[in-house]
Design a binder for these strands. Structure first.
Length: 402
DNA sequence: CGAGATTCATGTGAAGTATACCTTTAGGCTTAA
DNA sequence: AAGCCTAAAGGTATACTTCACATGAATCTCGTA
């Protein structure tokens, strides 16, 4: 047994890795150049450039589907601006916040609190009035006499959850500032986002707008080739692999992040199998694995009540296969589940909201339908691939100690 | 037969409540002069 | 008298509950052809 293990480990070293630099394929990797986004880079740069003359740049709004390079381009440009600002002794700060993160920036209070924390200020998670937290933040900002650039990623999620007042407050902030100035970059996956917000907010928040088009399959291929040169040793990738990755991602609205992830995970799978080259067959496995990991990750990080709800949905789904299931069924099962693990159940009202949130997360599909005489409800189905359900159930059971 | 009323099961908005946390304030105790 | 600690008072954000009303198509009702 030990013998085997030593052999394995020895071999592992000897064989070396398929990867030269795996980081090049990870989602937080920032390449030196961003291909096919020259226009967007120039536009963003042109809009933000006034910073370097200590002038407040226009607020900017960026739209585009996931994996079209919004975040990457924004970071790319702002990094450069940050660098040049530093060289020229311009007092500039750039804060990047992802509004989707639960319990970080998903309410007005938490958003501002997080900004204050970026300044190194200790602020409590709750208890203070919201204007108080604004004051703390603004005072700190005034003290430092600077230009502040706030990047709000996935801002549509925030507004969806808490309404558009936040945006109004944010845009109004400048009028309260004497020494410093704030500019906001909003990034949204939802192309129709601004249709539903207050026109006053809209005009001041999106003084400038940039739309990021999806990549097409050929562009994706080029991107993949470029990155794979950095990431893998020579001649590791078999013919057709890149093409297939690109095709898969192009099918999903040209999502470059996905394409890169497919390639990376394929590589990892090949490596784990002891293969010396990446075969086309690994891509399909990779796609499955990615989806599985995504779901597992989401599920595992949900609060308890969300887990119980999800568990109930899974249970109901598996009990009556190929029949549609409704809120009422889920709620009944939910109550049972609660009594099993000794937790007082929430009301149906609340459960309704939780189901809606789970839908937003994309792990279930819930559509409000009217069954005519038989009332109105949500038609719920799982958005988890068939093969992963058992695994998810296990995770849920373990964390709920069922 | 068809237009309009009815109905059901739950969606959904608003307001209220519980909890956990915050600051302020008043009182009480200690201490030093 | 001044200083310090503590506990109560008064305030907030968040997650949840309560209450009440909204929804919308299948079904029912009833007048009419």
């Amino acid at each position: 047994m030990t013998r085997q293990l030593t052999d394995f480990l020895q071999n592992y070293i000897k064989k070396g890795s398929l990867f030269k630099d795996k980081k090049a394929l990870q989602s937080n990797y920032k390449p030196k150049a961003v291909p096919y986004r020259g226009d967007q880079i120039n536009q963003v740069a042109a809009i933000l450039a006034p910073i370097l003359r200590m002038e407040k740049p226009s607020n900017l709004f960026i739209y585009g589907k996931t994996g079209t390079g919004k975040t990457l381009v924004t970071k790319h440009v702002t990094e450069n601006i940050r660098r040049i600002a530093k060289e020229n002794k311009i007092n500039l700060k750039i804060f990047y916040l992802n509004c989707k993160l639960k319990r970080v920036a998903d309410t007005e209070y938490r958003l501002i609190a997080q900004l204050a924390r970026e300044f190194g200020e200790e602020v409590p998670a709750t208890g203070l009035p919201t204007d108080e937290i604004y004051k703390i933040f603004l005072n700190k900002l005034e003290e430092e006499k600077m230009i502040l650039l706030i990047i709000l990623d996935e801002i549509d999620q925030l507004v969806h959850k808490t309404g558009d007042e936040i945006l109004y407050n944010l845009t109004r902030l400048n009028s309260e500032l004497k020494e410093s100035e704030i500019s906001i970059i909003g990034i949204s996956n939802d192309l129709l986002f601004t249709d539903n917000i207050d026109p006053r907010v809209k005009s001041s928040l999106s003084e400038e707008e940039i739309v990021f088009p999806p990549y097409n399959a050929i562009q994706l291929q080029k991107i993949l080739k470029q990155r794979s040169k950095l990431a893998f040793h020579e001649k590791i990738i078999k013919e057709g692999v890149i093409e297939k990755c690109a095709a898969y991602a192009a099918r999903e609205h040209g999502d470059a992040r996905r394409a890169l992830e497919l390639l990376r995970v394929s590589g990892e799978l090949a490596e784990r199998k002891g293969d010396t080259r990446i075969e086309v067959k690994y891509i399909d496995q990779a796609e499955e694995k990615i989806e599985r990991d995504r779901v597992v990750d989401i599920v595992a990080t949900q609060p308890k009540q969300f887990k119980i709800t999800l568990h109930s949905i899974v249970t109901v789904c598996s009990n009556n296969t190929n029949q549609s299931i409704f809120t009422g069924d889920v709620y009944n099962t939910y109550k049972e589940t609660c009594s099993q693990c000794g937790i007082t159940p929430l009301t149906q009202r609340r459960l309704s909201d939780i189901i809606a949130e789970l839908d937003m997360l994309g792990i279930i599909n819930a559509k409000v339908i009217s069954k005519g005489r038989y009332g109105r409800t949500r038609e719920i189905s799982l958005a988890i691939p068939e093969g992963n359900i058992t695994q998810i159930t296990t995770i849920l059971k373990n964390s709920l100690s069922l």
